[in-house]
């Protein structure tokens, strides 16, 4: 039993590394694509420097739009329009890297471009350290509290996958479980002060997760069905001559469906987490704006209007992590031969 848990943990660590790697590659690609934006960013950084560290990274688009808001959030709630290509005027809470960009202006561009991979990396390192530390103290006779809590989480996840996939769920638990932990911790990181949810960016994190899931699902499908079975399934599992005729129509439909799945997964996660973060940031701005309007002083903290939304954030972070994982599980289950098109899971 201890050997099995150790294997499980080792696989977790490996899959975490793969997740981070995918996120990094996607980030690098984004970096390559964003050359024309690069100039805009450096401009923005210079602009921010001009503000002498008072408002580190303010987007000038927002500056032009809402010059008065600028002063409202001067001390604690910088509405740094960080949302690169999705809407330049989205409020976003400052994270640690924004402050670091203020301290090290040379690295500001790099930090801005790589915010999401860096935060994903921080999460991966934290979780890896946790599991590696836990590994040395694993014991079947006398489990520690941490071990029991971890086993509770892993067992719960395994039970959930078993409900959907069936007895072979054991094989897929490492990937799906680490997907869940990675997404959940990244989502929760967005609620931590000075933290940033790496999952609130489509092109650096969530698309990488979706693409990784796509390749995993296709790999499992090919392995479980074989090439012939795979193509047969893609053609809508034809049996009679009529079915074979329709399979010409069904094949592109299934192909399109397979390609859309990861994008819809990624968009759902991104939209939810980005929306949630924006909501919290908007409420912070509102609270700071109210106190500024009442007192006219920069040194009065804002009303914590965002507080109730943290609970909403906790809820939606957990649900979105669960939904991403469950949908990936269902996509795997749909490809497994046993359920025969998974009538009970629906399409």
């Amino acid at each position: 039993m201890p050997e099995m848990s150790r294997n499980k943990l080792a696989t977790f660590a490996l899959v975490f590394g793969a997740l981070f790697f995918a996120a990094g590659i996607a980030g690098a690609q984004h970096d390559g694509h964003g050359h024309d934006q690069g100039t805009a960013h450096t401009e923005q950084v210079q602009d921010a420097d001009g503000h002498a560290g008072q408002n580190q990274a303010e987007d000038h688009a927002e500056e032009a739009l809402a010059g008065h808001q600028h002063d409202m959030d001067a001390h604690e709630a910088h509405g740094d329009g960080h949302g690169e290509e999705h809407g330049g005027s989205m409020p976003h809470l400052p994270n640690l890297l924004v402050f670091m960009a203020g301290w090290f202006p040379d690295a500001a561009h790099f930090l801005h471009e790589w915010t999401n991979p860096i935060y994903a990396f921080i999460v991966v390192i934290l979780v890896s350290i946790f599991f590696i530390n836990l590994r040395s103290s694993l014991s079947a006779r006398k489990p520690s509290r941490t071990q029991m809590a971890t086993e509770l989480v892993l067992g719960g996840l395994y039970g959930l996958f078993q409900q959907i996939i069936g007895p072979t769920a054991r094989r897929y638990t490492p990937y799906l479980g680490s997907l869940f932990l990675f997404i959940l911790l990244n989502n929760l990181f967005g609620l931590v002060p000075l933290g940033h949810a790496a999952t609130s960016a489509f092109n650096t994190t969530t698309f990488a997760l979706g693409a990784l899931t796509f390749f995993v699902v296709q790999g499992i499908a090919l392995k479980e069905n074989g090439i012939g079975g795979y193509l047969h399934h893609m053609a809508g599992s034809p049996k009679t001559g009529m079915d074979w005729g329709f399979s010409i129509l069904l094949f592109p439909l299934h192909l399109l469906g397979e390609l859309i799945k990861p994008i819809s997964l990624a968009l759902r996660l991104f939209g939810n987490i980005f929306g949630e973060d924006t909501l919290v940031a908007t409420m912070v701005l509102l609270g700071a704006g109210i106190t500024y309007g009442l007192t006219g002083s920069d040194f009065v903290p804002g009303i914590p209007l965002q507080f109730p939304f943290y609970f909403l954030g906790l809820l939606s972070s957990t649900i979105q992590a669960l939904v991403f994982t469950l949908l990936a599980t269902v996509y795997i289950a749909l490809w497994l031969p046993h359920g025969d098109h998974g009538e009970e899971h629906g399409h």
Binding site: H86, R268, G271, L322, V323, L326, H345
Partner: peptide, 19 residues
């Protein structure tokens, strides 16, 4: 489980509008 999956599909439509 089935309900949450279904809810995710329904909710995705709003998310598309949001995006």
């Amino acid at each position: 489980t089935a309900m949450i999956i279904g809810c995710a599909f329904i909710e995705a439509l709003t998310i598309y509008a949001l995006i």
